[in-house]
Amino acid sequence: MAFKKPSPLPGFGLSLGYTVFYLSLIVLIPLGALFCRVVTHMGFAEFWKLATTDRAIHSYQLTFGASLIAAAINAVFGTLLAWVLTRYEFPGRRLLDALVDFPFALPTAVAGLTLADLFSRQGWLGRYLVPAHIEVAYTPLGVVIALTFIGMPFIVRTLQPVLENLEREVEEASATLGAGRLRTFVSVILPTIMPALITGFALSFARAIGEYGSVVFIAGNKPGKSEITPLLIFLRLEEYDYTGAMAIAVVMLLFSFVLLIGINLIERWASRFQN
């Protein structure tokens, strides 16, 4: 191997072999198989027809759009939450900190059921929101709320260690140079936490794209209105329309892949000041 440099750490060949094998087993082989089946079982014209029905296109828009909005909401409010949890001492802080993991631990079906109940016409929140013409249940808004709920911990947990490691002195240095609190946050703190924020955003976004359980209960799943792509794939399978399901799945795969690569590039740019 030309790229193998002499190293005092033994086992490079073995570890590389293991990494490639494991990644292949878990990630590359299933995804590759899906891709191959689409390529071998249908022509491009058929694939294009199945993947771009009005119903499918609307579901892509809803899934990626709602996921982006949810991740953006989490980026703002999750940062705020992480900030409060790391920077201030107050009674009940540990309890709040533990609650952050709740969306991780909760079965997504339970989360979906709870949200659907909360926002239904008779629910605790729904009974006030519906008369005010704010429809949450069975609308794209409901989808965004469910995706925000399940994505929140990703931002908080990736930001917390970074915020904890911020040097007090750097903020003080900014103050001695005349910068107020807002200026210090925008010019000094934000760029420092930006790589972690982007990572958290990407994780939250990726999780939202794949989310199924918590969304289906609150979304109402009206075709062309509040139907997400993972559900559409599921429906196609139920109709024994394997090729239709696969065509949509491949579109999702490509979309996710491109988006994650893009986010990775932005993250690399944002951390250009690091080693």
């Binding site: 040097e167 002195e169 750097v170 003080e172 420092t192």
Partner: peptide, 11 residues
């Protein structure tokens, strides 16, 4: 003010 650890803005 020059801090002990310099406190440069690393970004």
């Amino acid at each position: 003010f020059v801090f002990q650890g310099y406190a440069l803005f690393k970004t």
